[in-house]
Amino acid sequence: MKQVKPEAPGQENLVELEKWHNLGYLFWAYMVVWVFLAGYLVLISRRMTRLSREMEILRRERRNGPAS
C-alpha cells in the first residue's frame, strides 16, 4: 500500500485521470452500505412506534374496561 507520488510533473494528470477509473464500483458499494443501514434503522423505529401505540391502546382498554 503505497501512496501515489507522481515522479514527473507531466505524469500528474495521468495519475489524476487513472484515479477516477472504477468510481462506479465505489459508488455502488457505498450505496449498499447506506441503503442497508438506513433501511434497517427505519424498519426498527417503525416497528417500535407501532408496538408502543398498540401497547398504549391495550393498557388504556384495561384501565377503562373493554370497550364493547
Partner: peptide
C-alpha cells in the same frame, strides 16, 4: 491517499 495499484476502488 489513493492506493497505487488498485486506485480509487480500494476505498471500499
Amino acid at each position: 491517499p489513493t492506493e497505487s495499484s488498485m486506485g480509487i476502488v480500494q476505498r471500499i
